[in-house]
Simulated assay, not measured.
Amino acid sequence: MNIRSLTRGDGVVIGAAVLLFIASFLDFYSCDTEFCSTNAWDSDLFPVLPSLYLAGIIAAGLIVGARFLPAGRKIAGLGLDQWGLALAVFAAWTGLWTLMGGLPADNGVGQILGVIAAVALAAGAVLNTRIPALQAALMGAPRPQAPSPYGAAPAQGYGYPGQQTAPSPYGAQAGQPTAQQSYGGQQQAAQPGPAAGAQGGQAAAGGEFAPFWFAVPVTRPLYAEDGSPTPIAELAPGTWYLAVDQRGAALIAQTQDGRRGVLQDTTGIQRG
């Protein structure tokens, strides 16, 4: 069921059905004598309830329900929306006649609102497929988030846990995690050393490696640590990964699901 398949015309139909339901509990007619007021649920007014109020509510259900069924689904040769249209017109026709019924009482607010709702429902059902403005989507599609351009600062979110910005240690780039970070369900301790800020994610010889976040400019394979030639994963641009160790010019990287592997090509990577 996709609610975004509903149109503005369907919204009119749904609103009219809600108003019909509310109106059925209000006074259908009223007079000056005691205990004269009553609503559509009173048995003395039968068949006003099924002919006006319930017929309109069922019509709205059929019209809206047809949006969520495969095209071509029919009952007795008619689609659900066609049955709903017929019931909506019938409810409006019945409502108009109740205004001329000659009851020995005044028209109540429930009767007037019910007739207005039934007419609006019938109009929405008839014009739903004929007026372009009513065919527009009731709810707009969600706007996709634009991916961060390569080289932009990492955003807070999945793959880059929130942290308090601390003064950068000696040799480290601004924004590099220096405290324990949670990634893929594991804790990685970032212990910066004197050579932690080497460009391209590499640490200078003799310095202790400091885990850091990085992004790749293009899709690159991640190989198993045992030297197998078959990639175990692919690193995609726009996602931040954690470098947990260094092996020569290569990096040991960890993916979002906790897998570790060797990133052999570290050219052009961007550090977090």
Rank of each mutant, 00 (worst) to 15 (best):
F68N: 09
S51Y: 09
P147S: 12
F90V: 09
L52D: 00
I116S: 02
W97E: 14
A71H: 07
W83Q: 06
Q164Y: 13
G102T: 08
Q111N: 11
L54G: 01
A66Q: 03
G56A: 02
P154T: 07
T165Y: 13
F68H: 02
A66G: 07
A66Y: 01
F25I: 02
Q111M: 02
I131A: 10
V109L: 14
G101S: 09
L96A: 08
A146W: 12
A86N: 09
P167D: 10
L99A: 07
R130L: 10
I116T: 02
I58P: 05
G151M: 05
P104W: 10
P154G: 09
P147K: 08
G61V: 12
D32A: 14
R73N: 10
A60T: 07
A59Q: 05
L99M: 14
F46T: 03
G77T: 02
P70R: 10
D42A: 06
S37M: 07
Q156M: 14
I112N: 00
S51D: 13
L26A: 11
A117Y: 04
I112M: 13
T129R: 15
A133G: 06
N39H: 01
G65Q: 03
G151T: 05
A92R: 01
L99Q: 10
A146T: 14
A146L: 15
Q135K: 09
I63T: 00
A146F: 04
A125H: 01
W93V: 04
S30L: 11
A136F: 03
I131W: 13
R130N: 07
G101F: 00
L78S: 08
P132M: 03
I131K: 09
R130H: 11
T38P: 06
C31P: 12
P50A: 00
S148G: 11
P47K: 04
A86P: 04
G84R: 05
V119S: 03
A153T: 13
G110P: 03
K74P: 12
G72L: 06
L87N: 01
S30P: 06
A23I: 00
L138G: 01
C31L: 14
N107F: 00
A118T: 01
G159C: 07
G61Q: 02
V64Y: 05
P144G: 10
L99D: 00
A55Y: 00
D106F: 02
I58Y: 06
L80R: 07
S24D: 07
A66H: 06
G79C: 11
P104D: 12
L96V: 05
D106C: 08
G102P: 12
V89L: 13
A60C: 00
F68Q: 08
G56K: 01
Y158S: 15
L45Q: 00
L26H: 03
W93C: 09
P132C: 04
Q156V: 14
V109Y: 13
S37C: 13
D42Y: 07
